[in-house]
């Protein structure tokens, strides 16, 4: 399955909806989107991974790169993910300590609103 990307901004938080497989072939598209969003001044990003079927270390690298970029602007990059097979990759690599991971977009938005 290919990668589908969509995004929208509400109350200063840009949600990036990702669907499909994030691997060495498709990850560059996600990287380009994150870079483009940051370049356009979107420094608070929420990547919704609920429809991601597959994520490998290339995808992790793109997310880490995105986090690095937004932090340079005092921004944030957080994730929505409840799929155990995806969460396992974050746990193996220790990245659960790096990313805020929420169970739903609504929960992440509430947390973002509290932090503003």
């Amino acid at each position: 399955m290919d990668l589908k990307l969509d995004h929208h901004t509400e109350d200063g938080l840009t949600t990036v909806d990702v669907e499909g497989e994030i691997d060495v072939y498709t990850a560059p598209r996600l990287r380009e989107l994150l870079i483009d969003l940051v370049n356009k001044g979107n420094f608070h990003l929420l990547v919704n991974m609920e429809k991601v079927d597959f994520l490998d270390s290339t995808g992790l690298g793109v997310l880490v790169g995105g986090l690095k970029r937004v932090r340079a602007h005092d921004g944030s990059l957080e994730l929505v993910c409840t799929q155990e097979r995806i969460l396992k990759i974050f746990r193996i690599t220790g990245l659960t300590k790096v990313f805020g991971i929420y169970a739903s977009v609504e929960e992440a938005r509430e947390a973002h609103g509290r932090d503003k």
Partner: peptide
Amino acid sequence: SFMSGFGIAV
């Protein structure tokens, strides 16, 4: 690279 090390870790 950074990703290569990540891949091996995974």
